[in-house]
Design a protein around this nucleic acid. Sequence first.
DNA 1: GGTTGCATCGGACTTTCGTCCCATGGCGGA
DNA 2: TCCGCCATGGGACGAAAGTCCGATGCAACC
Lengths: 219, 219
Amino acid sequence: MPRLLIADDHPLFRAALHQAARAALDEGSIGEACDLPATLDALGNEPDTDLVLLDLHMPGSRGLSGLAALRGQFPAVAVMVVSAHDEPQVVRRVLDHGAAGFISKSASPDEIAAAIRTVLDCGEWVPPHLGESVAALPSDPHDSELAARLARLTGQQYRVLGLLAEGLLNKQIADRLAIQERTVKAHVTAIFEKLGVRNRTQASLLLRSLDLVDPARVD
Amino acid sequence: MPRLLIADDHPLFRAALHQAARAALDEGSIGEACDLPATLDALGNEPDTDLVLLDLHMPGSRGLSGLAALRGQFPAVAVMVVSAHDEPQVVRRVLDHGAAGFISKSASPDEIAAAIRTVLDCGEWVPPHLGESVAALPSDPHDSELAARLARLTGQQYRVLGLLAEGLLNKQIADRLAIQERTVKAHVTAIFEKLGVRNRTQASLLLRSLDLVDPARVD
DNA sequence: GGTTGCATCGGACTTTCGTCCCATGGCGGA
DNA sequence: TCCGCCATGGGACGAAAGTCCGATGCAACC
């Protein structure tokens, strides 16, 4: 009885995914989340979730950072990325960051259902029309190493990193997380060590390198 | 007798542009530069330059930041952006940052020549097949304001900002520019004031928001 | 010739950052 | 049950960042 979680900030599209997922499953539960924190919370409450359908553009994540956070904190949960951004380069990066599959937002319900079944069966899914071009693309060593580094961060460290990368002071981060500045500093030091950087600006750049700043600026 | 400057890191393409520009001009001088610092140097030596053909992807600039620097330091020099990235959204942003025109790298020599003549005649040039979609796009207020703020920076302040946005320490910036750390601090304070930010991480983010392609997919 | 803007620095200062010790309590796996 | 990881903090400290006063020289511009 598989457990699914649909993470997308667009209610309409969430519903469409829900329907396609229902068609793919004989039984099982399907949860929903509308932003990244809610997604992580939902997974914290349901660690036995089998698969997350993750939109790349949600409040709290402008690109691969959401995927990285999710993979880092719940490595056992498979993630299928859902995005309108179906260029081979994007798919390549998504897979390099640990996603089990990729669905284009223009895919048919049948294709989505097939993708879900494949991934739930521990397979990997790439849209048929992109398979060749994705396979032909080399993995960017920068991405691979970055994924490995980010995977070492703990949940709280991800949150600190996210706020830090917005330019907040340690004190402000402390207020947001309702902890002491002293504790934030401890996390920051740990983050630097794990990411191999020496100050917060560099850490911020590293996280930003996960942005898929679509030239299209679609939002 | 117009003065042109071609700024592109690809020698072959530089030559092609050179030839197209020659065809557009009866007389006049045509200079070349292969990276952003060289471009700014060349303009410093030739402030009477009429037009720069600027590639968006050059060493020293991954996106609009090169255009911003150029427009900020030499507001009297027209800039025609040359890029393979010919989506309407990109053209829109390029124009919002003060470019006088845009040429796709897939344009024919005839079209390039026409574009150069138009811009030298104080006109604005957008590829014919993109004109409508670009005009339909709204200017991003974020981009407009950012362009205005960046335009207030001086040349040295741009250099400091660029190094700062790479995560360097004040001391390292000082060494790179062969000045004292004390002077770097003075620049940094001025940069913050002009950009309306309060620390270097925020300044770095502001500059990064000009990037057009995902940093990991470096050519 | 005066003004304005820029770049260069100096001293002294406060704030923030980042690191080094250390300790506590919780929680899950071996 | 014990061990290890995590989150939480405390004290102290040096380093870096950032601000406030000031100054000089230089070049451009009217």
